[in-house]
Amino acid sequence: MGTIDLRAAADENSIANLSSQVHQLPCCIRFEGPAQVSHYFKPKSSEVEIDGVRTEEAHFRGRKLQGATISLPSGYSGFVLGQASNRNANGKRKASSLTEEKPCWEVKAKFDKMTYWNHDSLPSKDDTFLRSFHWFNIAEALHKPVTVEDLVAVSHGGKG
């Protein structure tokens, strides 16, 4: 199993904050690398407001997208991960080192706001992307340590 190094995230100045510059598109782009996103991808605020969120419009490859910029729930952050840079400094050949060693990831940037885009529908609370946040509450409940009092309450409930 690989490791994820989150240490850089603790220092606000060492990594870029990409809040509101992270977009989740309803498509797969078979390309990895830098691109002039802001030059070509130009979201505009639209007139429509849904569930208190102002929707946005943008076009990508000739298709109209409708999106919303959302804040990540408090207590959570978004991170952009990349292969740890010290990997190349080892002087090993890239291809072999990647396959033989356990991958090591590190935080390259963080964000607390992001925009997700729908193709055929206006953003709403029913979108899978927003619904996936439901997990946060459940995870919290599941992982909360069980106290003696909890156990007592449950056992009493069982008798009654």
């Binding site: 390309f31 691109a35 002039q36 070509y40 991808f41 130009k42 990508f60 490859r61 000739g62 298709r63």
Partner: peptide, 12 residues
Amino acid sequence: HSVFGFPSLVRF
């Protein structure tokens, strides 16, 4: 553009 295609004026 290899990623973005054409400007939005173009009907893709």
